[in-house]
Amino acid sequence: MNIQVTVNGKSHEKEVDPRLLLVHFLREDLGLTGTKIGCDTSQCGACVVKMDGVTVKSCTCLAVQADGSEITTIEGIATNGELHPVQEAFWEKHGLQCGYCTAGMIMTTVELLEKNPDPSEDQVREGLKGNICRCTGYQNIVRAVLAAAEAQRS
């Protein structure tokens, strides 16, 4: 089946098998391997991307469902070589160790702060419940999200 998807501002037209998952389409057909696969049950959030303005787990979405949509991945949030404030904050606050959950964490955070620019620590922790990290104990991720919120507000 033929689909057209705009990813990080670039339009792609591809023939795909209906059963192809969006995450496999992004990683293998488009070579955007920044989006990761961490589980097979929609639990871990490593594969989170933005689709038409909201975050989705791209392992729980068929590529054909994305036909006609606009997608942003971790590769697409820095502008003109400048890191997104959320990327900056993750770096500054040591919000990552092995880096495997990071793309999903950052994409989730971008939406979280769009919906709530001044979240409490509890709201941040609640907002990250769909993303699993095994390295950080979440503490510095939470700090990073709060720091990004502050940076974006000022």
Binding site: R19, L21, T41, S42, C59, T60, C61, L62, V64, Q65
Partner: peptide, 26 residues
């Protein structure tokens, strides 16, 4: 029927559901 996919797709990925046709009503 496929709506948001959060019930059907996990079942399909584990091959616990094997529909011959998926009707996307999204």
């Amino acid at each position: 029927i496929l709506a948001g996919g959060h019930s059907l797709l996990p079942m399909m990925k584990l091959r616990l559901a094997r529909p011959t046709m998926v009707i996307d009503i999204g």
